[in-house]
Nucleic acid binder design. Structure first.
Lengths: 398, 398
DNA sequence: AAAAGTTTGTATATCGATTGAACTAAGTTT
DNA sequence: AAACTTAGTTCAATCGATATACAAACTTTT
């Protein structure tokens, strides 16, 4: 049974539009909101008053006159509540507290060496507890928790598989809701990153974009018509396991020639094992890691630079597949591999341009993340904020 | 400026819901519509009366009583107007006239041998003119023309490129609007096919599906949340040019190792050239064509059957990429290669299953087109019908 | 400095769509 | 024949947006 229309729906739509307008373009007067939205002055007045009663909008004094009565400027009350965002990495937990506008208020980052489910869960709870305890007082308090995890999350928020964390079938959202008594939203890391860049980063001006998270593996977050597309069961975006060599290397996933075997951090580390590197690993071990390779590249060791080049080419191949598939306005490359932008970019773009149809070649914007390591954590907190507004029957992204 | 809410919007939403309910589940009484939609009896009555004034709904006498007054049964008036659908193939033009419910009333199929732009355009106009001239009288007459073309169509309806028809930058929609004086909707063949299957074929029950059109080349039509996704500029779905062999055969598109080089009709014909076939080509020439190969397969010639097997495997590889990317509920395979289902299916599914993540393996329904050669033409006519309802401020697909 | 004009924001009446309640119509069951 | 059921209409009530009028506060012109 579809949702039918009534006056309540009308009010909900208009109230959302008014709030959204103020949120994105404040400070704004009631008159400006009226002319920006096309809503009648009186309608804006009454909706703004209700939003003020709900602490979501506040008056901030008068603005300059343009030949008449001075306008009363309105502001989105971004500190009406706070949201927790978590980027649950394979070897770290990055936790932030943000206001309703995505500004970071508190931040906490812990390294994880013991990857057992128990330990990770414990550390996760400690991190969240800490930012919640220190959160400033506000009308709504902590309105929710958003978490990005490196794995597959179904559309009920259940973690189904994490290739690098050995978590299987964990009801993370249930566990944390119980622990903290506030709504918890779990999504995969690439979706969170896509939301982060769309809301706060390089993707702000675009409504059809693909966020390509290149870390240990590769996952993509798909934003179409301004909204995340999660697939029928929540498992879209597993493009790391797209075949780009029909008879290529075997992958853990069961497939052969998966993109991430050639274009991810793991691909880089694997080919690095063959080289004897003159730089020590950061954790003292013998295995090379990304930081070691980056330092080697900075020292202009040709073998290492050429390795980045090869990986960059394979990234470009995948990007051309993405463009042919989705025809997005923009592709944003994020996660750890962005730190190697300097050595990846050129070979990547060369491969992309040489393989792409002319119509796409210069139409699609290819950029690196503008939020750096914070795409996913900000996206995660935004998911919580967005859910909060949903619960208030106000919608942010429409 | 976003669309704001007012009473007119409410009415539009509810009227659409009422019409949609009647269209899909008729015959229905006003009372049934009310309980199915949740709308008040009075509301349904007044909206139905308006729809009857607009000739979109009609009464069809009383139905059986269930212990009270007999209900007056309502029907969607599918013959209030007619739409033209065209599947513009590389070597044929299939034209139909359908009622508003997608039932074919007239059909015309012409073979094209002279592929010059002029000749194709002339033939196209003749075909359309003929079905329009013979269309039955109706309140709205011919409400529009929908056309599926084998190439790239931008979001303004301009044909930008047809790899197998040598059409470039043709304003097909402009030309035909001028000629016939009714709205023309041009889209690519895969999008039309996707819409056809979604509305009338195998995809009726699904809202996230991918239609894979395998003919001379490969294109896909993407239906997400019940709606076609066309990409930022209208060029989504060019998955035929997705790389599946990083250093594979060069393709006309500039890329290497494109999927359609291994999994399309062309791929089949190319490998067939190596074989001396004991069957004559249909047009008397020496070059093998699909029909010849199908006859050879029916005669159980092992080399030919194995060729189909190889192509089937490559199709399966691409399908697994599609599943990893979109996580759709369903994949529908359409266009000419469906005629080889018998020999393609098993190798295709084998490759697919062996390459797909366990979560997807049995969750995604993989089917062959249920409309056969008519997916695209019915989809095209539906696009015209759907535009017609848009113009009436009534929406079908929401 | 007074008058005229402008801009902001509020108050009030009107409009239009849904809804609830009452009602009519037309059947079935007891 | 009376009681009950179901279908569909009518009409007043309600609610939200809008138009109009108006008050408040400021700028520009005379």
């Amino acid at each position: 049974m579809k949702r039918t229309g009534d006056q309540y729906l009308v009010k909900q739509i208009n109230k959302s539009i008014v709030l959204d307008t103020i949120r994105r373009q404040s400070p704004l007067s009631r008159a400006q909101v009226s002319s920006l939205t096309g809503l009648h002055k009186g309608t804006v007045s009454s909706l703004v008053n209700e939003l003020m009663e709900n602490d979501l909008v506040k008056e901030i004094g008068t603005g300059p006159s343009s030949g008449g009565r001075k306008p009363v400027m309105l502001l989105f009350n971004k500190t009406a509540g706070y949201a927790v965002g978590v980027d649950l990495g394979v070897n770290y937990i990055l936790t932030v507290l943000t206001d309703l506008d995505g500004n970071i208020v508190l931040e906490r980052n812990v390294k994880i060496s013991d990857r057992s489910t128990e330990n990770v869960l414990t550390q996760l709870k400690i991190s969240i507890r800490e930012v919640i305890d220190r959160s400033p007082p506000s009308p709504y308090g902590v309105i929710g928790i958003g978490i990005g995890v490196p794995g597959m999350v179904d559309n009920k928020g259940q973690v189904r598989m994490t290739p690098n964390l050995q978590w299987n079938e964990i009801d993370l959202s249930g566990v944390l809701t119980k622990e903290f008594g506030c709504p918890v939203r779990v999504d995969n890391e690439a979706n969170a990153g896509a939301m982060g860049e769309k809301q706060f980063g390089a993707g702000r001006k675009f409504s059809d974009l693909i966020y390509v998270s290149i870390g240990i593996g590769i996952g993509i977050g798909i934003v179409l018509r301004g909204e995340l597309y999660r697939g029928a069961s929540g498992f879209s975006g597993e493009m790391g396991h797209m075949t780009i060599e029909a008879n290529g290397k075997p992958c853990k996933c069961g497939n052969k020639g998966c993109w991430e075997l050639y274009a991810s951090e793991n691909a880089l580390l694997e080919s690095a094992e063959a080289l004897p590197l003159p730089v020590q690993s950061t954790d003292g071990g013998n295995a090379p890691d990304l930081d070691v390779l980056l330092r080697a590249a900075h020292e202009e060791i040709p073998e290492v630079i050429s390795m980045f080049g090869t990986v960059g080419q394979f990234i470009g191949i995948g990007l051309s597949n993405i463009v042919n598939t989705f025809n997005p306005e923009q592709i944003i490359i994020g996660n750890r591999m962005t730190t190697a932008e300097k050595w990846l970019k050129e070979p990547m773009l060369d491969a992309f341009h040489s393989r792409t149809l002319p119509v796409h070649r210069h139409r699609t914007k290819i950029e690196f993340s503008s939020l750096g390591t914070h795409s996913a954590v900000l996206g995660a907190s935004h998911l919580a904020v967005s859910d909060f507004f949903d619960r208030m029957n106000l919608y942010m992204d429409r």
